[in-house]
Amino acid sequence: MSLILLIEQVLNGLQFGIMLFLMAAGLTLIFGVMGLINLAHGSLYMIGAFCAAAVAAATGSFLLGLVAALAGAAIAGALVELVVIRRLYAKDHLDQVLATFALILIFSEGTRWIFGSFPLFLDVPEFLSGPVTLPGGIEYPLYRLTLIAVGLAVALGLWMLISRTRLGVQIRAGENDREMIAALGIDIARLYTIVFALGAALAGLAGALVGAIQSVQVGMGEPVLILAFVVIVIGGIGSIKGALVGAILVGLTDTLGGIFLPEILKLFLDPSTATSVGSSLASMAIYILMAAVLILRPAGLFGARA
């Protein structure tokens, strides 16, 4: 395997991990602050992708599509929190799982009713299309590099929001002792709505950005949701830093495992068997990684509590 191919795959894994981070960051905020298991988070990812595709097709502007994705997912998230989620905080986690699973079905059928069953396509904007030449003569798609840069910028912005602003102080306090901050006069219901809308907006942004790489279709959020839960378990519940590190680890493990494991097994097995077994092991690699992390650090890499 050439060095150029290796670097390209590392960049692919980094890009995949950064997109997982945008999903996992909102999910870990919601779970960490509210203690809520939100299975409908993937549906908000789907809503962002459909909003971006519809607005970009109508206006011809990819940037307006991104704005629509952020706004549409945030509004949908706020409405879900106000109408449904607010009634679940005092309920058992099983009730939360059942209610948010019902939301998945509602959002999926509602999206199919509005947009139809056929996938939509979101084109990469012209100013981000084509490859860019990196040091060493490596050519890599400019759009994928932009996704990495956007994800890292969002991570920096979230860190500044959580650590340097009054809202961030309230979020951190709500994660540690929600009864105390309510007693101090903080409107906990308003805080929960803001956090849920912020998490939904991040999921919508991820859906819109990924929508230019793959087709936008009903149900696209569920596979990503599973990986996002893996990310927050590895990184630690409630930790933005953990979500970033966990997402990058998952992205690199998934991408590099699919490349290296079949090649390594070819040293011991015939090519067809090595490819089959290697692909199977690669699909299991991230879950093996999660199990190893939980054995060594049950609260996750940066989790404060299990």
Rank of each mutant, 00 (worst) to 15 (best):
Y89I: 05
I148R: 05
A58R: 10
A282N: 13
L120V: 10
A243I: 01
L29N: 02
G238T: 05
V83H: 10
G204D: 03
V83P: 11
I286W: 13
A285P: 13
A74M: 08
S276D: 15
L66A: 03
V10A: 04
G13P: 01
I104F: 09
M160N: 14
T275F: 15
L63R: 11
I162S: 08
Y45K: 00
T59A: 03
A76P: 02
S215F: 09
I264D: 10
V67W: 05
A291N: 15
L269E: 11
L88W: 09
Y89Q: 08
A54L: 08
A25E: 06
P271E: 10
M180T: 13
D177R: 12
A197S: 06
E81V: 07
L36K: 04
L167E: 07
A71W: 00
I37F: 09
M34D: 00
F268S: 14
A53Y: 00
V250N: 05
W113P: 12
L249F: 03
L66Y: 04
W113L: 15
E81S: 07
L152R: 07
G204I: 02
L14T: 08
S276G: 14
L94W: 13
L202R: 03
G151R: 06
V124T: 12
L44S: 01
A58M: 07
L29M: 04
G211R: 02
D187P: 08
S283P: 12
L98P: 11
A57Y: 02
G17M: 05
A282Q: 13
V210T: 11
E81L: 08
S283W: 14
M160A: 15
I138L: 11
V293D: 14
R112I: 10
A285C: 13
A306T: 15
I171L: 09
M284T: 15
P223W: 09
L265C: 07
H93A: 14
S239H: 00
A74R: 05
G137H: 09
T133N: 13
V67E: 02
A228I: 03
A52D: 00
T255L: 07
A208I: 01
V33R: 02
L249R: 05
V154N: 02
G35I: 04
W159N: 12
S108Q: 14
G300P: 15
G278S: 11
A49P: 02
G77H: 02
L36P: 05
M34V: 03
R87Q: 13
L209E: 01
E8Y: 07
I240N: 04
L225H: 08
G65E: 02
G204M: 00
L36Q: 03
T146M: 12
L145S: 08
G151V: 04
S117C: 10
I75A: 09
T146G: 11
A173H: 06
G13L: 03
Y45F: 03
V210M: 10
L191A: 07
M220P: 00
L158Q: 07
V55H: 01
L202A: 06
L147E: 06
V84W: 13
A228F: 05
F115W: 06
G185P: 07
L98K: 09
G303R: 14
A243S: 01
